[in-house]
Amino acid sequence: GYTLQDINNDKVPELIFAILDNEKQGKGYYGKDIYAVYTFVDGKIKFVDEGWARSNLQLLPNNMLLMRGNSSNTDYVLVLEDLLPNGNKRCVDMYFTRSKNGNAAVNGLDVYRNDVGRDDVAASQKTNMTADDFFDMGAEMAGDSVKLELLPLKECKQRGFKGLAMQYLECMGVHELQDAKFDLSKYEQVSVPNPFKGADVIFRSTRNLEEFRLLELASGKSVYSKDLLMADEKLVLHLESLETIPKNGISFKDDAGRERRFAILQSGKDGSIYLQEIE
């Protein structure tokens, strides 16, 4: 599948090809493992990076690219990079392994770190990490990677880029705001009836959303509706508690004319708020 997503904040989206998950979510298709990334610089398409069997490529929530790979059973690498507006990648952090005295066993690996983007021992610092620490860190980062909404390649001629929705939506808890004194008085306040142990959530979109609804998921009833929610409108949603099974969600029509429904959930790991497409 493929998607358009701006990961270097230059207001021009990158073209990303990735592997579709086996199962659909709602009316969308999703996937994490990236095949290739292309950007647009000075009027020309520019190749950025690729993922393959021994070089797994994923996108993190902060728009950094995470690459995990190996060239042998002793040489593993984990790289965090961001994409600059000029289309070049910049290494933010890199870890790699080397064998201890030719020992090919996993527990015989040293772990090195640098920010130059080369698995060069001379340009790196040896860490106190064990091989298990290294692999656990990579697995944890991969677990936090973004599930991209994708359009199947087979539907390219029929749909173009119509039907993508997830990357235009933003949902976050008030507690996630960097400035605790952030003024919410200009936001429209929307509340579900009698929220028990309520949770306050900010919702916004970078696209106009037709037939926007705030839903009570158990009954499917709409507790708030708007024929057109404009891209510059921001809502504070006063919802039921998010600590257990999600009770509230949103729906709207995407640019392909399909109703899309998303549950509003809270991560059990860090308390962050996120959306998950549902039927």
Score class of each variant (00 low, 15 high):
45 I>V: 12
189 Q>M: 10
31 G>L: 01
40 F>W: 15
234 K>Q: 15
64 M>Q: 15
25 Q>K: 15
257 G>N: 11
161 F>E: 11
204 R>C: 05
144 D>M: 09
55 S>H: 12
150 L>K: 03
251 S>I: 03
47 F>W: 10
108 G>V: 02
74 T>A: 14
231 A>K: 13
237 L>M: 15
221 K>E: 10
178 Q>V: 08
121 V>P: 03
231 A>P: 03
245 I>N: 06
172 M>C: 13
133 D>H: 06
99 S>P: 05
209 L>D: 00
197 K>S: 06
109 L>Y: 00
110 D>Y: 10
223 V>H: 07
184 L>K: 07
142 A>W: 08
50 E>I: 10
7 I>M: 09
257 G>C: 08
42 D>K: 13
213 R>H: 15
167 Q>Y: 05
239 L>Q: 03
210 E>K: 14
144 D>I: 03
271 G>L: 09
250 I>Y: 01
51 G>Y: 06
163 G>R: 11
104 A>I: 09
59 L>Q: 02
120 D>W: 00
78 L>E: 00
109 L>P: 01
266 Q>A: 11
34 I>N: 00
106 V>Q: 06
12 V>G: 03
61 P>R: 12
155 E>I: 05
204 R>A: 06
17 F>M: 10
55 S>K: 14
85 P>S: 09
160 G>M: 12
116 V>P: 00
260 R>N: 11
16 I>N: 00
235 L>K: 01
18 A>E: 01
32 K>E: 13
43 G>H: 07
79 V>W: 00
29 Y>K: 06
187 Y>R: 13
208 N>F: 09
181 K>H: 13
167 Q>E: 04
143 G>W: 12
34 I>W: 01
263 A>V: 12
261 R>F: 04
64 M>W: 09
230 M>T: 07
158 Q>M: 12
185 S>P: 03
165 A>H: 02
114 N>S: 12
18 A>P: 08
254 D>G: 07
133 D>N: 12
126 K>D: 07
179 D>I: 08
63 N>Y: 06
134 F>D: 01
131 A>W: 01
143 G>F: 13
218 A>L: 12
137 M>I: 07
104 A>T: 11
21 D>N: 15
16 I>G: 01
135 F>T: 02
226 K>T: 09
215 L>V: 07
26 G>P: 05
216 E>T: 12
69 G>H: 05
144 D>H: 14
229 L>S: 02
156 C>Q: 13
35 Y>E: 11
64 M>P: 02
63 N>T: 14
264 I>S: 01
126 K>C: 05
65 L>H: 02
272 S>F: 02
4 L>W: 13
18 A>W: 00
86 N>I: 10
114 N>V: 04
116 V>L: 11
127 T>D: 09
76 Y>H: 14
18 A>Y: 00
108 G>K: 04
64 M>S: 11
16 I>F: 10
119 D>P: 00
6 D>T: 06
229 L>W: 02
186 K>T: 15
279 E>S: 14
64 M>V: 03
83 L>P: 01
201 V>W: 01
107 N>H: 11
139 A>W: 07
196 F>Q: 13
61 P>G: 08
90 R>S: 13
264 I>A: 02
9 N>G: 07
244 T>A: 14
34 I>T: 02
205 S>G: 07
232 D>R: 11
276 Q>Y: 05
107 N>F: 08
135 F>E: 02
